[in-house]
Design a protein around this nucleic acid. Structure first.
Lengths: 80, 80
DNA sequence: GCGGATTTGTACGTATGTATG
DNA sequence: GCATACATACGTACAAATCCG
């Protein structure tokens, strides 16, 4: 869970959590991440913070996001 | 084809495509447009997006729509 | 006229994008 | 960082009108 009293910004904490889940394979390639609303409720942060965290992962190439559909873990390989 | 990552909204892109076809005469006055389902499949967007695009053209007077029949390019002249 | 297929109308529900305070 | 509002987009379901065999 994110910790209000850690020095690290909330969105960084959340990004780290999701990044770990992806790297560990708990979020499989091709799989959809929980919605922003779900993440918001799960980690008790605002939607803005969730979106900030997702942007971090997006910039890292860890996820891809589609309007109206959600964020996904992209396939590792190049068979697109 | 419509492009998910263009800045222009999908329904605007689709409206522009159909508007061009009308203005070019590829869709003749009096002719029926493809059904919403056909447009949906052709351009790979949701029906809601198709309907949004058609509403744009309807508001422009480019097409008229009848329940159970379809959308049509109205005659240019006033012989209704 | 009947019945199924087609087409548009409407209503929800869910999700992301953007803007504002 | 948070809260709210609205726009954009997808999916589903069903109703209403029309078309056609």
């Amino acid at each position: 869970m994110v910790d209000l009293w850690r020095a690290e910004p909330l969105h960084e904490q959340l990004a780290a959590i999701l990044r770990t889940q992806i790297d560990k394979g708990e979020l499989q390639p091709g799989q959809r991440l929980p919605s922003e609303l779900a993440l918001q409720q799960t980690y008790d942060v605002s939607r803005g913070t969730v979106r900030h965290a997702l942007k971090v992962l997006r910039d890292e190439g860890k996820i891809v996001t589609y309007l109206g559909r959600g964020s996904f873990v992209p396939p590792k390989n190049q068979d697109l």
